[in-house]
């Protein structure tokens, strides 16, 4: 039987708060660096330098930009719906941050004489929790697009509605193969089940489907139709400026981090290292972070390379190729596991 949350050891309340603060702080410290990293890497792909003026190696660039965005006039269109217009980016960023709690950064460690799991929470319904948050984050995009009172935002929101629903199905199905193999829904349990072999190898099809669907879920190229700067001029956040825009931007990056973390956990063995290397426990978070950076680099690389799909092509790809493939993958995994 699966309970809602099987916590098999006790953590004092102050440790839980400390963990939440540390995870939040570290991620929001990494986030600005990631934006610089993306722009630097894109610059390298595109035969230019990227930001290199503010601070050493341009690392202070995001700081300057956050200040700039924060000082912007909180402009909104006359046709927008004030409350929803302000609420939507908040929904996006909150659901994105909520996903961070799930990523297991390491095994249970001994900190200050307290047994502590190096993760926000370890619920026994791990992936479902992430999908639930993904479902809510979709409100952030659709509400934002709809409440803007702009036709471009509206079209972007409609695209988001179709795209996120279509691809969440494939993403979920691709995961079920892993869940069947690991026989657990707990993310730490899934990592521990990968001690022999990372699921990246036996579940290669599921891995690829998960990655493709993740690109669509995070609205990254080549599935960035929701933003589609060439056609819709930004899509759902066309009308957002200042802090609202920053919230959406950060939500996108946090979503990328969460998806990267999920991929690293589910398919690349989380904090485990290959060839029987067992570093001390404090190294684990860095291993996870390094694996996440691999996926982040992939996200950026694809963005620099691939053009955007068209709306109908996106839908037919999702429903006619990805979903049947994910179903077959699930079926094959189930047969193999049962026998």
């Amino acid at each position: 039987m699966i309970g809602l949350a099987n916590i098999d050891y006790f953590e004092p309340w102050w440790m839980q708060i400390a963990k939440a603060l540390v995870i939040f702080g570290v991620i929001f410290g990494v986030l600005p660096i990631l934006t610089v990293y993306e722009r630097k890497l894109l610059g390298r792909f595109q035969h230019r330098y990227g930001p290199n003026r503010v601070g050493p190696f341009g690392l202070m660039q995001p700081l300057a930009e956050i200040v700039k965005f924060a000082l912007k006039e909180p402009f909104r269109p006359r046709t927008s719906m004030g409350f929803l217009f302000r609420l939507a980016p908040a929904i996006s960023i909150m659901t994105a941050v909520g996903g961070l709690a799930l990523i297991p950064w390491g095994n249970v460690q001994d900190i200050f004489g307290t047994r502590t799991g190096l993760y926000g929470i370890d619920v026994s319904v791990g992936p479902l929790y992430v999908f639930a948050l993904g479902g809510i984050s979709f409100y952030g995009i659709v509400l934002g697009g709809w409440a803007s009172g702009s036709k471009y935002s509206f079209l972007g929101a409609m695209r988001a509605a179709a795209q996120l629903i279509s691809y969440e199905v494939s993403q979920g199905l691709a995961l079920v193969g892993v869940l069947i193999s690991a026989q657990t829904l707990s993310l730490t349990g899934i990592v521990n089940a990968q001690r022999g072999m990372w699921y990246f190898i036996p579940q290669i099809v599921g891995f690829l489907i998960f990655m493709v669907a993740s690109f669509a879920e995070t609205n990254r190229a080549p599935f960035d139709l929701v933003e589609a700067d060439g056609e819709l001029g930004g899509g759902y956040f066309t009308e957002y400026g200042g802090t609202g825009f920053v919230a959406y931007l950060f939500a996108e990056y946090v979503n990328m981090l969460v998806v990267s973390g999920m991929a690293a956990t589910l398919f690349l063995g989380g904090w485990l290292l290959p060839f029987g290397i067992h570093p001390p426990g404090w190294v684990d978070p860095f291993v996870v972070l390094a694996k996440m950076m691999i996926f982040m680099t992939l996200f950026i690389w694809i963005r620099a390379t691939l053009p955007r799909l068209r709306y109908d092509q996106l839908m037919s790809f999702g429903w006619k190729i990805l979903l049947p493939l994910a179903t077959v993958n699930l079926l094959v995994t189930a047969i193999v596991v049962v026998h």
């Binding site: 894109l42 792909f45 060439g230 620099a304 691939l306 053009p307 955007r308």
Partner: peptide, 8 residues
Amino acid sequence: LGAMSMFW
């Protein structure tokens, strides 16, 4: 078309 690198 969304292939941004070509521009540069």
